[in-house]
Amino acid sequence: MTPSLPDLLRRPGIVVAPGCHDALGARILRQAGFEAIYMTGNGLSASLIGAPDLGLLTMTEMVARGRAIAASIDVPLIADADTGYGNLNNVVRTVREYEAAGVAAIHLEDQATPKRCGAMSGLSLVPPAEHAAKLRAALAARRSPDFLVIGRSDARLVNGFEDAVQRGTAYAEAGADLVLLEMLQSPEEMREAVARIPAPMAFNVVEHKVPPLTAREIGELGFRLLNYPVSSTLAYAAMMRGFAESLRRQGTTLAPEAPPLLPLHDYEEILGLREAYH
């Protein structure tokens, strides 16, 4: 039986959950051996509507993609749930919709509406008491204790490290299953946050925005869950740009310098075509 996310977190070591924006990416990550997957809001905004992560997607759009990704894999899916899409009543519905969709965990962030990707400038935050109330509402709304609620703060780049830790502590005291502080800027900050916040800690790797540490190094600092939210979407965008430029320049997809294409047989294997025939 596939371990639940709480089961994975009870094991020694860090749980690594690479991000993806679609079910194909989720299947590839799972077949590579990862035991948890992350659904990126940034990547979904790019892949669904071709727009930056500015809070443009609705809860129903996010949940629909979460349902499709969760159904395509046999491991826990952790999902971005932005700010909960409104007030406390919206947060209750958000939790119930994500849980019913088969998602294993969500994180709720303390940004004001309209929100932005945590790596962007110009973020604004709600008071920590307001976000703590959302987290309590989310925890009360879940039907299974195995559905985890992660309290996220984007305060580090807005108000500094100390405010981020104080907010993380408030979210832990509100009962969040894990706490996620975005954009910690050094291993020292990371280590101190783990030591001071009374809850298991998650970390998001956004390349060139946080310290360039390996998963092992981040685990050694005391973090329990590690997400790579937008990395695979950046890889996809780089591949697609190279593919488009090569095809436009060469007039063929088979030029020697063109990006390599996955053999059709391998592609069908990823999707389980052989099993579908039985």
Rank of each mutant, 00 (worst) to 15 (best):
108 L>P: 02
109 E>C: 02
109 E>V: 02
110 D>N: 14
111 Q>W: 00
111 Q>K: 10
114 P>G: 09
115 K>V: 05
116 R>S: 12
116 R>W: 07
118 G>C: 12
120 M>L: 14
122 G>D: 07
122 G>A: 08
125 L>V: 06
125 L>S: 10
126 V>Y: 04
127 P>A: 14
127 P>M: 02
128 P>C: 04
130 E>Q: 15
132 A>P: 09
133 A>E: 14
134 K>T: 04
134 K>C: 03
135 L>K: 07
137 A>Y: 03
138 A>E: 08
139 L>H: 12
141 A>N: 13
142 R>P: 06
143 R>Q: 15
144 S>N: 14
144 S>C: 11
146 D>H: 14
146 D>L: 08
147 F>G: 11
148 L>C: 11
150 I>G: 06
150 I>V: 14
151 G>L: 02
151 G>D: 04
151 G>N: 09
152 R>A: 05
153 S>D: 10
154 D>W: 05
154 D>Y: 06
155 A>L: 10
158 V>S: 09
159 N>E: 14
161 F>E: 03
166 Q>S: 13
166 Q>C: 05
168 G>M: 02
168 G>A: 08
169 T>A: 01
170 A>S: 10
172 A>V: 01
173 E>L: 15
173 E>C: 06
174 A>H: 05
175 G>Y: 02
176 A>P: 09
177 D>K: 09
177 D>I: 06
178 L>K: 02
179 V>L: 11
180 L>T: 11
182 E>A: 15
186 S>E: 01
187 P>Q: 11
187 P>F: 09
193 A>L: 07
193 A>G: 10
196 R>H: 05
198 P>M: 13
199 A>T: 07
200 P>R: 12
201 M>P: 08
202 A>K: 01
202 A>G: 13
203 F>H: 15
206 V>F: 15
